[in-house]
Nucleic acid binder design. Structure first.
Lengths: 127, 127
DNA sequence: CAGACTATACGAAGATATTCGTTGACTTAC
DNA sequence: GTAAGTCAACGAATATCTTCGTATAGTCTG
């Protein structure tokens, strides 16, 4: 059970639907994606087949409509992606990442207090 | 002067060198990259030519060794990349991004206090 | 059961990203 | 000035990502 590769852009969009809605058929994912971006049904199907091969999703081969599920929880995939970006663009600087994120997009007071809470709890359980 | 596109992985590695060291010739970038990852000289050259076309770098066509420079400051490119990830993988949740970044990689006390300082100053000049 | 519908599989085309060999021009050291 | 080295330009091969048409088989409605 090795770690699946970093999802591509299109694959991540599909994973997003699976995380949001739980296990889905191709059609359900197709419908969800088409709410925002027009794509063909077989395009979505093809990706989900590829993602099965790559180990990004698992497939329940239910009769007449396979049901797919993200193999990793969203948080774990997010951690992979964010550390990847951290290394590729921020030379590993966590504060640089936070600074530019907050500079690029205004955070709501709720977000900010959420982040403060994360910081407050950060050392519990560590060390 | 339109905004250059999102750099690819290989392009970002080259930009990293240019941000770190300032204007460079192809050979200087080539040497810097080969410290960590083996690539051919012409591969690097080709990328830098492509990046010139895309507007990611500018080129001073000095005689017998063009000098390249990143067109955008590092911070601006970082902002583009981080908001891109925010939208593609975190549904725009800033706190989610920070949480997973901090969960994935232990931050030093210095980084943490730096982040606290960013938060403290965050609303100055805004509103 | 026949026609309409929905599903998977397959393959291929197009787009983009990555890598590098070769060529010809220029520079420098003898 | 000639040999050895360095450079940019170009084109091509390869890999990866994205998109979709077509074929085929199963399901459902009347």
């Amino acid at each position: 059970m090795e770690k699946p590769p970093k999802p591509t852009e299109a694959e991540l969009a599909i994973l997003g639907v699976l995380w949001q809605r739980g296990p889905c058929t191709v059609r359900q994912v197709y419908d969800a994606l088409n709410a925002t971006k027009k794509t063909g049904y077989t395009t979505v199907l093809k990706f989900m087949q590829i993602m099965t091969e790559k180990g990004l999703v698992t497939r329940d081969e239910a009769p007449y409509a396979h049901v797919y599920q993200a193999r990793l929880p969203q948080e774990q995939a997010q951690r992979t992606l964010v550390t990847d970006l951290l290394d590729r663009a921020f030379e590993g600087s966590m504060s640089g990442l936070v600074l530019q994120a907050l500079s690029a997009r205004r955070a709501s007071p709720e977000e900010l207090s959420e982040i403060r809470k994360i910081l407050k709890n950060y050392d519990r359980g560590a060390k």
